[in-house]
Design a protein around this nucleic acid. Structure first.
Lengths: 374, 374
DNA sequence: CGAGGCGATGAATCAACTG
DNA sequence: GCAGTTGATTCATCGCCTC
């Protein structure tokens, strides 16, 4: 028996939980009705508090469909912190002592979430980077492409004996330990839910592969997973497929409707279908600039083609310069030859020993052998 | 002249700064002696061991007791926050209005740093993931391999017009935008500094490639870079190499000694190697009318967009005319597409050879190449 | 039926100068 | 300070259509 904070006694048994159901309500209010220490794992995708300004146009003149929903608007950092602490406190109460919580966010909110987690007594286990294989570019060229989101994985306390399926993660990752950076594509294509008008049903739907990895890593079959910001129910759909029980909380009726339909249609899936090996394509590649930064091809190096018809100097940003013309190893190679394109890796050579030209591709190969990309 | 907060008037001129020097002192105390708004860029690698004790000091220089129990953990977060805010506040004072700051950390401290940055009035521009190509494995198999660190890049305020060398970063990354995740190896091998006993001279020496990318992206040659936690002087060595000025602050004499030697041995790049791809925003402006007057685009020329959906004729005053509509190359392009704005230079094309359309921007480039800078 | 072109789009804190 | 003008700026993926 567990004493609830309104003074009632309530069984913490599985039967008391609204399993495999969506509660349409504010998440703090809905969690308040759940017993203490009854949940194995929480996945939370709270509002990010993006603080966007005016419209943003792509170079082709079309407008970016921004997240401008009311649920993402907060008056101040202070207001956002109060909101965050309220739901984190309630989440910690319903979490079992050995349970863990996942929260996802971007640089707009994740630092405040992390601070709040620590201040509320959680014990951080990892921060995980979801490296987006296909992020939206930075259209104006004003910053680095915002190409990732951050997840925090935390236990209820430092003493917690939490679930981590080490071998399952290793198996999922070509038999090497799963790292803290995960390369996964955005949710799109057939997986992306549409409303009746053909528009996206929810502005921030997460890919199932992300939740799949989370639940596979940190829950056991039959565990109860709570999602206080359920949206279109990705957590419910994946939990059902993986044989976990789930509870979703969502305030907006239209999302609840979409989620119900979706989860009803979800089939427990053959595990092999989801155990996608990290594809070479999604792995980071080696740019010529990496070799320049690393000092293998220092700025100032002279490069030439195999027959020494042209020579060029490597600049600090790895662009090449030849008699006032400049560009990347590929672009300048193409321009000098008058060709539409050129593989700079094989076109340009450096003199590693006197009189001996070697294509810069051999430098790249040496680099790859010494510091593998994965 | 700049008014300092202790009521003295002090010149903010470059001569007043201890350029290319290491100040052996506590960073808050040393920064207090620097003038307001005198620094272009700050790189900071603050201590983050919350529980290990030893490295954590209060702003007044006294040491924090290492503590383990829950109550004192809160005390230690609180103390760490106070320390963080103290140096961030002083850093913001010495930063120019258009300057930026970089801070690196791990999940132990980066959330508190990010929150403090926001609370102190900084405006976050990006969080950058340093994805370690060769991280230390997790030996116990109890968590995901901690394979990255996080950097935060922030401007002094939302209105700041900060430096970002977009084209240089694009060049460094095979001609596609630089993303927020950077894959770089740990600092090791010959780069890793050793003390007389052959042990590593500093426990958290950062790779030069990381600082190289940071300084190349967000500073200009001659800019002043401040590092308040200088350690073995990686920031100084890279700044010297890239033709930037630097100021280092370090409390421990043994690190100061190592850093001095190291930086003295670093070789600056020569001028030609140091240049990077210029931003087009900094190129001199050329009015379309200039090209019309010069006869490169004679009045009467027919222009069209790349897909020949619209055609327009150039008038004597360099305005364009299309079926009764007229306006500048930009205005008419925007109007025809129904877009709020349009770059007429890349939108409009002329037929220089039969069947071959070329953007009028190439005419401008030709003009710029022929008429040297004013 | 396959290759290739075209259009759409994704949690985005997305310009700078002149008058 | 505000308004108007100039002009710099995009990557990967998916679906649909044409050839």
């Amino acid at each position: 028996m567990v004493k609830m904070d309104r003074g009632l006694l309530m069984p913490a048994s599985r039967e008391a939980l609204p399993l495999d159901r969506i509660l349409r309500d504010d998440c703090v209010r809905a969690m308040a009705l759940l017993p203490d220490k009854s949940i194995d794992c929480i996945f939370a995708d709270p509002p990010y508090n993006l603080q966007l300004g005016g419209d943003l146009h792509r170079p082709d003149g079309t407008m970016v469909d921004a997240v401008d929903d009311d649920w993402d608007k907060f008056e101040s950092y202070y207001t956002y912190d109060r909101f965050t602490r309220a739901w984190l406190r309630e989440a910690r109460r319903v979490l079992k002592d050995d349970g863990t919580i996942w929260v996802i966010g971007s640089y707009h909110n994740i630092f405040r979430v992390g601070t709040s987690l620590q201040d509320e007594g959680y014990w951080l286990l990892n921060d995980i980077i979801w490296r987006k294989a296909n992020p939206m570019p930075n259209f104006k060229g004003t910053r680095f492409t915002n190409a990732h989101e951050t997840l925090i994985w935390a236990a209820k306390s430092e003493e917690s004996r939490y679930t981590f399926n080490y071998q399952a993660m290793k198996a999922l990752n070509e038999d090497v330990q799963m790292r803290s950076d995960w390369s996964l594509p955005l949710c799109g294509g057939a997986e992306r839910l549409k409303d009746d008008d053909g528009n996206k049903a929810h502005p921030t739907q997460k890919p199932e592969a992300l939740i799949y990895r989370i639940l596979l890593a940190t829950t056991k079959p039959g565990d109860v997973v709570l999602d206080p910001f359920f949206g279109t129910g990705t957590t419910g759909a994946v939990a059902k497929r993986l044989g976990r029980r789930w509870i979703g909380i969502e305030r907006e009726a239209k999302y609840v409707r979409v989620a119900r339909e979706r989860i009803a249609a979800a089939l427990p899936l053959d595990e092999s279908a989801m155990t996608v090996m990290p594809s070479r394509r999604s792995a980071p590649r080696v740019a010529f600039g990496t070799l320049v930064e690393a000092g293998l091809v220092p700025p100032g190096t002279m490069l030439s083609d195999a027959r020494r018809r042209w020579a060029a100097v490597v600049r600090a940003d790895s662009s090449l310069m030849h008699e006032g013309q400049s560009g990347s190893i590929h672009k300048l190679g193409a321009a000098l030859q008058g060709a539409p394109s050129c593989n700079g890796w094989t076109f340009w050579h450096m003199e590693r020993a006197p009189g001996q030209l070697e294509p810069i591709d051999t430098v790249r190969q040496a680099w790859l052998a010494q510091a593998p990309a994965s």
